[in-house]
């Protein structure tokens, strides 16, 4: 049995605006073990992005408990939160979020800048991550000159560079054509299957979720279904 990475119990999240409480997530309880590939699926407005932000230490829940690697998020200091994001989490966004005027290599090195990894290691690590997503021929390209699919692969390399425990991917194919989308999903799946990275994918498309082993369906801020994927796409 693999250790539990993420443990959520009775998690609730509300936004407050001018004293009015708007609940987003209600009473969520689930756990994710290391090495799992989980898709969180739901229509827009279901609260799945908010959930990802909380899981990724980018936002805080209102009540309930969230334990990451056995430690409650409330026990992490501000700097520790930054450190966890840096060393244990990788993020892949729908909008890629690369810095446009610097090279692919520099973009991938970005997380190392804030890490404890020795500087002499940076280039080697970044190059390795870029190779892993199949872009070795693009090291010195400026990020703006890449196609959408390539950009997202660079973003994945950036997420990989610190060998995180978990990669959060928020609609990673949302801005891509279907072919590039499939390529990106194949990479994520390979990272999970071949390298054992835990991957949490947010999507609203059922066929994307089929790359995962497990799908948590969110509807109106509640878990609707939590099921194993029967016909997982084989690479």
């Amino acid at each position: 049995m693999k250790p539990v990475l993420i443990e959520v119990s009775n998690l609730q999240k509300s936004y407050f605006s001018e004293g009015v409480e708007t609940p987003i997530l209600h009473d969520l309880t689930f756990s994710i073990t290391e090495g799992e590939f989980v898709a969180i699926m739901g229509p827009s407005g279901s609260g799945k992005s908010t959930l990802l932000h909380i899981l990724g230490f980018l936002d805080r829940h209102t009540t309930g408990e969230y334990r990451f690697k056995g430690k409650s998020i409330d026990d992490y200091s501000k700097d520790e939160v930054a450190r966890v994001r840096n060393e244990m989490m990788g993020f892949v966004f729908q909008a890629f979020n690369l810095l446009p005027r610097i090279s692919v290599l520099e973009n991938v090195k970005l997380p190392l800048l804030y890490s404890r990894v020795a500087e002499r290691e940076w280039n080697r690590r970044a190059e390795e991550a870029i190779r892993a997503v199949g872009l070795a021929h693009r090291f010195q390209f400026d990020a703006v000159r890449l196609s959408g699919g390539e950009k997202q692969r660079v973003a994945i390399a950036r997420a990989l560079v610190n060998s995180p425990s978990v990669i959060f991917a928020d609609e990673p194919t949302g801005n891509l054509d279907s072919r590039s989308g499939v390529a990106v999903m194949d990479i994520l799946q390979a990272l999970n299957e071949e390298r054992g990275h835990t991957i949490i994918l947010i999507t609203h498309e059922a066929y994307m979720a089929e790359h995962a082993e497990r799908v948590i369906h969110i509807l109106d801020g509640r878990i609707d279904k939590d099921e194993k994927v029967m016909k997982r796409i084989r690479k």
Binding site: K78, N86, N97, L99, L110, Y114, R158
Partner: peptide
């Protein structure tokens, strides 16, 4: 804003 947010997501502290 977006760049700042990104850097923070990648592990930058307020000080950074």
């Amino acid at each position: 804003t977006r760049e700042i947010g990104l850097r923070k997501a990648l592990g930058a502290t307020d000080r950074d």
